[in-house]
Amino acid sequence: MAAVLDSEGAGGLDGCEGMWSFAAFDEAEEAVLLSRDRFGEKPLHLYRDTEGLYFASEIKTLVALIGRRLEPDTDHLLRYMTNSYKSLYKEPHSFFKGVEELPPATTLRINADGSEQLGRYWTPELVQQEDMTVEEAVTGVRDRLLRGVEIRLRADVPIAFCMSGGIDSVSLVSIAKRIFGYDVHGYTILNTDRRYEELEMVEHAVSELGIRHDFLPLTTDGFISGLRTLTQYHDAPVYTLSYYAHWRLMEAIAADGYRISVSGT
């Protein structure tokens, strides 16, 4: 990333792939460049007051920089309590007054004189190719999916795989195992609710692919204390209960020594 910025500037970000939020200081021009990945997967919070602009990837870091507690945005909190996750990202609100997020796929340059320049390095475009055949469409999707998995297998440490019975995670596991020969270790939440239970499909995929695999039973033990801990991590309410279940899965993966996991979500 540093090499791209040095050689191409912010315009080179369109050629980068992955998740990021960063601040880069240009010593020659005494300017700071903030940036966030295409889909806003990594957070970057902003706060302005009479002293200047503060930025951080976590609210608790903003609080430490500012030196005082932030005031909750009760209006946004009430919207969330009424409409749950459907109230999120409709407008540039956060759960704290004055805090906003740098929009996805954008850069914010803060110059030495304090002026700011907001730019966008990528905008999704819908381009219809009426003459594309079904075979071409299938090949195009397959090639891109294979390349996406190949890139994400480049790691200095072992990678774990989150695995449900759905087509997304099973596709990723299958590609990693069958195409690239990766020693896949899959992890699945074992749900006792038959409306969401996918045990049969998971066991079939594990048997067919011959991978290492562990189930994590989902229980209500420690739910309230766990929910409180997760809220503290996020500095915000837990958006959906699936976040809680996924966090428990991450705990099990981390306990086995993994620091990176691949997920279909």
Rank of each mutant, 00 (worst) to 15 (best):
T192W: 04
T220D: 02
F180E: 13
L227Q: 04
L145S: 04
P92L: 11
F22G: 07
A137C: 14
D14V: 15
I253E: 07
L78W: 03
R154N: 06
R38N: 05
I189F: 12
L126H: 06
T133H: 03
I189P: 11
E116A: 05
F161W: 09
E125I: 04
H93D: 12
K177M: 15
Y54L: 11
D113I: 06
I211H: 08
G257K: 00
S174I: 06
E41R: 12
V141A: 04
L53H: 08
V99K: 09
A112R: 07
R152Y: 08
P103I: 11
L88R: 02
I167H: 08
G52Y: 14
E203N: 15
L65F: 09
G166Q: 03
I66W: 12
Y54F: 15
E251H: 02
T139E: 03
V141N: 00
S242W: 10
E41K: 14
A155H: 13
I260F: 05
T74A: 07
E101L: 15
T192G: 07
A56Q: 10
F25W: 10
E116W: 08
T61D: 10
G186R: 06
D6A: 12
E130A: 07
M81P: 01
P72G: 15
A205Q: 07
T133L: 02
G98C: 09
F215G: 02
F22A: 06
F96M: 09
V184H: 13
A176V: 13
E27M: 11
E8D: 01
R144H: 15
L33Q: 01
S21T: 06
R144F: 12
R228P: 12
I175M: 03
D37S: 14
P104M: 04
M1E: 02
L70C: 12
E17Q: 11
W247E: 00
V4H: 01
F180R: 14
V127S: 07
R109E: 00
T219S: 12
A56P: 13
P104G: 03
R36W: 04
H234T: 05
S115K: 02
E200L: 10
V157Y: 15
A255L: 01
L145T: 07
